[in-house]
């Protein structure tokens, strides 16, 4: 059986029919159906997501110990061995965060094909749809789907508003994800974090929203928003402050906090500074390795199980 046929029969066609049925159930609103589907996907993949979030949190807990290993061993091979040992001792799987992302790939691709077909923006797309529907009256008679949702035409390219929503959502997600990474300023990892912080939101905001059907942007935006909420609940916001979203040079931005500019400074250094660090940004920037020693007083040699209870909330307190 050709792989294309398997893909169609096992994933694409069921999803097409499911989305149409969902749309009919959701008051004939395809936009609402996409939002419901997003929530449903998130519910189904929640065990995987939870594993990722736990892995993420565990990795953050391990950061001081890992930093110690980095500092202690100069030989890359020995360093790797010790790192793996540390992972093993604490039961952390460094690949734990990949699962949900990999699971999302086929879902997203199938959804992409589904949206292009079900929305029937061109006559060919709609005609082709007739051969993909199950012989169920409830589904067959739901066509054509209404493509209007919240002032958008879901069959046309996404709007700037939707692009901005996706951009902000992804930026926040990236920002929270990297908020406690113990990277040395100027290191390859720090640069990569910095690059990804901007590249991914811009890429998704531009390519997936402005050049593809808005329905896909809606799914991505909703999925990102749920991701941010889950990350916030289970991992914590780290040193991220909502005020960071307001540009500093705007008149109303300055009142949110002298905060805003201060946060921006600490954010930049937080990539370098580990959790619990109380040093100033300048100190971090200038003494990236020293700060590892002063962090919370815990380390591999202390016999401590690590700074487990250090949550994002605790971390923010010293900065206030």
């Amino acid at each position: 059986m050709p792989i294309g046929l398997i893909w169609q029969t096992a994933l694409e066609t069921p999803l097409i029919n499911f989305m149409i049925a969902l749309s009919r159930t959701a008051f004939d609103s395809y936009g609402l159906a996409i939002l419901l589907f997003t929530v449903l996907t998130r519910v189904v993949t929640f065990p995987l997501t939870l594993r990722t979030l736990h892995a993420m949190k565990s990795m953050q807990v391990l950061q001081p110990l890992l930093a110690e290993v980095q500092k202690k061993y100069t030989d890359p091979r020995r360093r790797s061995e010790e790192t793996m040992k540390l992972y093993k001792e604490h039961g952390v799987n460094p690949l734990g965060c990949l699962g949900p992302q990999l699971v999302q790939i086929p879902i997203f691709i199938a959804l992409y094909a589904t949206i292009r077909l079900t929305i029937g923006s061109t006559p060919e797309a709609m005609l082709y749809l007739s051969s993909r529907l199950y012989d169920i009256e409830y589904i067959r008679h739901a066509i054509p789907l209404s493509t209007s949702f919240l002032g958008m035409d879901l069959a046309e390219n996404g709007s700037m508003g939707l692009a901005a929503f996706v951009f902000v959502g992804m930026w926040v997600q990236q920002r929270i994800s990297t908020s406690r990474a113990s990277t040395t300023p100027g290191s390859q990892q720090a640069q990569m974090n910095q690059m990804m912080q901007w590249f991914m939101p811009i890429f998704f905001g531009w390519f997936f929203v402005l050049t593809l059907p808005a329905a896909l942007g809606l799914y991505w935006g909703a999925s990102t928003a749920i991701g941010v909420i889950l990350q916030w609940i289970f991992v914590g916001p780290g040193d991220f402050h909502v005020g960071e979203l307001i540009p500093r040079n705007l008149p109303w931005g300055s009142s949110t906090a002298g905060g805003t500019s201060a946060v921006s400074t600490t954010r930049r250094t937080s990539n370098a500074a580990p959790r619990g660090g109380t040093e100033s940004g300048d100190d971090d920037a200038n003494h990236g390795s020293e700060r590892e020693d002063s962090r919370g007083g815990s380390g591999p040699g202390t016999g401590s199980t690590g700074p487990g209870p250090r949550t994002g909330r605790r971390r923010r307190n010293p900065r206030r």
């Binding site: 990795m59 790797s80 460094p94 992302q101 990277t183 290191s187 974090n193």
Partner: peptide
């Protein structure tokens, strides 16, 4: 083999693969 920076790199690699 893994070392401390690979966790983040893997996530980025996964994201690039997805893109």
């Amino acid at each position: 083999m893994f070392h401390v920076k690979h966790h983040g790199l893997r996530r980025h690699i996964a994201m690039f693969a997805m893109v």
